[in-house]
Design a protein around this nucleic acid. Structure first.
Lengths: 135, 135
DNA sequence: TCAATATATCGACGAATGTCAATCTAGCAG
DNA sequence: CTGCTAGATTGACATTCGTCGATATATTGA
């Protein structure tokens, strides 16, 4: 703002009157739109019951399960499980196939790994991924 | 849930009176506790502004930034940015170092990749990660 | 056709979340 | 010591979220 120059700004400007809070346009390498999409996916994973649902579905032999198989172990009501499953479907982690009276939910194969990959590619977040993760 | 056997249950039991919704203990490979921890981290990433904050901090030369550098580009108030940064710190994605008047936030190097790795290791979710993700 | 069942949808309610204005706490400069 | 500034904390508010009960839809079986 006026006098107390931040160390960083001082290092760049050496001057005095410049404050440390300039907009610095173009600095953020991650745009708002992809950030929102990424956040939506993370938000879908940001619930313990949904993670458990994913794990339970994936752990099955056929990697699919109907709602009635998932309601009991979680201790949640059927509408709630249906709701969570819908969120996971909307986020692209599950697919729903209706066979007869039952709805079979199965895992979208590369969804999670793709999310991981996006984390690495998208913007400077790649700098955070120095350790080998999924191999 | 008394008579109409679900296909899967029918395939396993062949009987008749068994319903499809038995608790099936020990079926879920992902326990509730680690699921909650994972969910907490995902929840921290489930906000576009927080992802942008992470990206902005990581993109800097020194991979650190003070609050005043982050407030402007996001169009958020200072308390809000502080709040988001605290969430990211609590989740283990950022660290805070106070130098003089300024608080410098920097990225925890392996945090994101470790999260990716946990996704692969933890339980049957590994089955979802068939594509090479972070290399 | 009619009853039963699996699932989805709706409405409601309490809890959590994102945001801001106002205030509080510390360092720094004079 | 007295302002001034960077940042954290508090309180309030609207919105979203997770959950449930009740209901609607569709499919199977008699």
């Amino acid at each position: 703002m006026t006098t107390t120059t931040s160390p960083e700004a001082a290092a760049r400007l050496v001057g005095d009157g410049a404050d440390c809070c300039e907009p610095q346009p173009g600095t953020a390498p991650l745009e708002a739109e992809p950030a929102a999409e990424l956040a939506a996916k993370f938000k879908a994973l940001g619930d313990a019951n949904r993670l458990l649902l994913l794990a339970m579905i994936a752990s099955g032999e056929s990697a699919e399960a109907c709602v009635c198989d998932l309601t009991g172990p979680l201790g949640l009501g059927q509408p709630t499980v249906s709701h969570h499953l819908k969120i996971l479907v909307d986020a692209g982690f599950l697919t729903r196939e209706k066979r007869g009276t039952w709805s079979y939910y199965s895992v979208v194969p590369g969804a999670l790994s793709e999310l991981c990959a996006e984390l690495c590619k998208e913007s400077a977040l790649g700098g955070l991924m120095d350790a080998p993760s999924c191999d």
